[in-house]
């Protein structure tokens, strides 16, 4: 089974800690972007490591590949054509500052080798981000939904 970074959208408070942690961990290039919406919400966007990733399909150089439940990027093979940027539905593949290559979330692969979670997840003050199996994520949501329904029932009975 594979773990991924999941986001509980309503929890994000636009503090941008994840961006700054990510850029510190990735030579100054943040792979996660917090997008504020109408000064009422903020959405943390990063590579979703899609199962049938459009960027992988678009990459003719083989720089992007779906492996072990993630979309891995090999900078050495990147030709800088930018097709992946066009293909990505979330705009989370970005040019490097020199415009010759791209950067994207690698789920902090280096850290995982020593059993440490991705920095965006560890740093999120609101616990909006989690690194887990999807079943763990949905179970938590289900549990909260049921608890909330039952609280409604309790109020009625009281």
């Amino acid at each position: 089974m594979t773990r991924l970074v999941y986001v509980q959208m309503e929890r994000c408070l636009d503090c941008q800690a994840c961006e700054i942690a990510c850029q510190r961990e990735h030579q100054g290039l943040p792979n996660i972007v917090v997008v504020p919406v109408e000064d009422r919400f903020a959405v943390a966007l990063m590579c979703r490591h899609c199962d049938s990733a459009p960027c992988v399909a678009a990459c003719y150089a083989g720089a992007l590949a779906a492996t072990d439940g993630m979309v891995a990027f090999d900078a050495a093979r990147c030709t800088g054509c930018g097709l992946c940027l066009v293909a990505c539905p979330f705009g989370v593949i970005q040019w490097t500052p020199d415009g010759r290559s791209v950067h994207k979330c690698d789920l902090c692969t280096d850290r995982q080798a020593t059993g440490r979670e991705p920095v965006c997840v560890l740093t999120c003050p609101a616990e909006a981000l989690s690194y887990e199996e999807y079943t763990e994520f949905t179970r938590r949501v289900q549990h909260r939904a049921v608890a909330s329904v039952l609280r409604g029932q309790e109020v009625k009975r009281r």
Partner: peptide, 20 residues
């Protein structure tokens, strides 16, 4: 479906599953 799991993340009931 490209399997990006945005639907999973926004469902308020956690009832969109994933068939790996």
């Amino acid at each position: 479906c490209i399997g990006c799991w945005m639907c999973t993340m926004v469902c308020p009931y956690g009832v969109i599953g994933r068939q790996l």
